[in-house]
């Protein structure tokens, strides 16, 4: 498996990580190296094996429908790089 530059650009876009055009080649090489190494899993026979999705076989606990959180606008916004009037500010989104 060897990733081309277009694929790397697409992954970078999906990941929202800017990759300069000049670096695409290098990143493609690194990712391809790792993917090639991972490919060895293909040899493992997994016919009729159910996937293991989590780290535990515990049962999920449910919380009661009780309001016991929220009402902490100041704490929620305390670390915001651009907080205004109780809102988080971001560059204008044009729909």
């Amino acid at each position: 498996m060897s990733l081309d530059k277009a694929t790397v650009r697409r992954i970078a876009t999906l990941s929202r990580i800017e990759v300069a055009d000049a670096d695409l080649e290098v990143v493609a090489g690194q990712l391809s190296g790792i993917l090639n190494w991972i490919e060895q899993l293909k040899e493992v026979d997994t016919t009729n094996v159910a996937p293991m999705t989590g780290g535990t076989d515990l049962k999920l606990q449910w919380r009661p429908d009780v309001v016991n959180d929220g009402d902490k606008m100041e704490q929620v916004l305390a670390n915001a790089p651009d907080g205004h009037d109780g809102f988080f500010g971001v560059p204008k989104v044009v729909e």
Binding site: D69, G70, K72, G86
Partner: peptide, 17 residues
């Protein structure tokens, strides 16, 4: 989470971490 679902609260007042 345990935050309220009420309609019409002030901005970010019904928000937990």
């Amino acid at each position: 989470s345990g935050s309220s679902t009420d309609f019409g609260g002030g901005p970010n007042t019904q928000v937990s971490f």
